Simulated scan of single mutants.
Amino acid sequence: MSENVLEVKDLITAFRMEDGDWVRAVDGVSFRVPKGKTVGIVGESGCGKSVTSMSIVGLLPKPMGHVLGGEVLFKGEDLTRTSDKRMHQVRGGEIGVIFQEPMTALNPVHRIGKQISESLILHRGMNKREALKESVALLEKVGIPAPEERVMEYPHQLSGGMRQRVVIAIALACKPDLLIADEPTTALDVTVQSQILELMADLQAEMGMSTILITHDLGVIAGHCDEVVVMYAGRVVERAPVQTLFSSPQHAYTRGLLQAIPTLETPRKSRLNTIEGQVAAISDFVPGCRFCQRMERSGDTLKTRAPFVEIFEDHWVEACPECVDVSSLSAS
């Protein structure tokens, strides 16, 4: 058996436009999720993080979105080639998903207990009474007070933090092997964010599951992940253990992200560092280095995609000579 619960290999996901052309939102993405570990995926809005996660669980919008190539190996099974019936078993059963925006992830017209019970009845074969009892236990596990009362309430009666705990309870109801958490702390205040992340870490340790944590927040990545995948314009530009990435970032985009974070030593009211330029429209992506495209560079780096190479142990980078120190590559 592989030590990885999930292996994504050269994943290509595209959307068909109204004129019939295909645009690639995910372009040759590869990473792995070891058993019991947390892998963070970080990058700007529109870089392909959420599309990657939806490709894994087969939730791309139809008929526009399609996986055009690559493999998604979940416990050795390629989910890109499995049947719809099998995907229904995997999704919610063996892979749990925490969607963005807890305010909209729950159905406003159904009680909390019914929404949790649905997964238990479908995947664990419980009857309604058993499922409701287990729903109460799950709400208690995720730290919701008076769970016997909350199961009979509607989403609008709960705070944002409590709604997010309900979403986590639904995702963990069937004790999945893999949890995909897509911006799980969006729109929550800092204190509640910390509580939610600690809760997820505790439940992961208790259940022994693996986690993909998608976020914009590098502080969350530093505190809660074992490995980091940095995405830009639909591609992975760097992948490394979390300590390695923060101490020795190699790609210019990764360095730019880290330099944009204010520190305790940052003078008050000083101008924060930013990354120059803007991400190109998806229809205008060049075949070569897309960060060079942002920097308005010219030359061969825009025409040919640089190889994704291992420069140090478990430290991989898209080796564009304009974005990566060549001496680091030669030293490895």
Rank of each mutant, 00 (worst) to 15 (best):
K114R: 13
A233F: 03
P321L: 10
R255Y: 06
I98V: 14
T244G: 03
V190P: 00
P102Q: 12
K114E: 13
M103K: 08
V142G: 00
E183Q: 05
K303M: 10
D21A: 09
L138R: 08
T80C: 11
F285Y: 15
E296N: 15
D182E: 11
A171C: 05
K303F: 07
K128M: 15
L258H: 14
E322R: 12
G28Y: 03
M126G: 02
G76P: 06
G288P: 01
D314K: 15
E318S: 15
D217N: 15
A171I: 10
L203N: 11
N107D: 10
V5Q: 07
V317D: 00
A260D: 08
Q293P: 04
L6V: 08
G96S: 06
V279L: 03
C292P: 00
S159M: 09
Y253A: 02
R129G: 00
M152E: 08
A319Q: 07
L158P: 02
P63F: 13
R129W: 13
A105F: 15
F74H: 03
L178T: 12
C225G: 08
S117C: 03
M87A: 09
K141A: 09
V324Y: 04
E44W: 00
Q259P: 00
L199A: 12
R305G: 06
K85D: 09
K49M: 02
D189V: 06
R124H: 02
L122M: 06
S45F: 04
T38F: 12
A173Q: 06
V26R: 01
I144R: 07
V39C: 10
G223F: 07
A14K: 08
M207P: 04
Y154Q: 08
M209G: 05
K9R: 15
G113D: 02
S247T: 13
K85V: 10
I275M: 09
V136G: 00
G125Q: 12
V286G: 01
R165F: 07
V286N: 01
P267M: 01
C292W: 06
A331C: 10
H156D: 07
K62H: 14
R235L: 06
I95T: 08
V33A: 03
D300A: 13
L199R: 07
L213G: 01
G223I: 09
T274L: 04
V190Q: 10
S53N: 05
D300W: 15
G143Y: 04
D314Q: 14
C225A: 15
C323A: 11
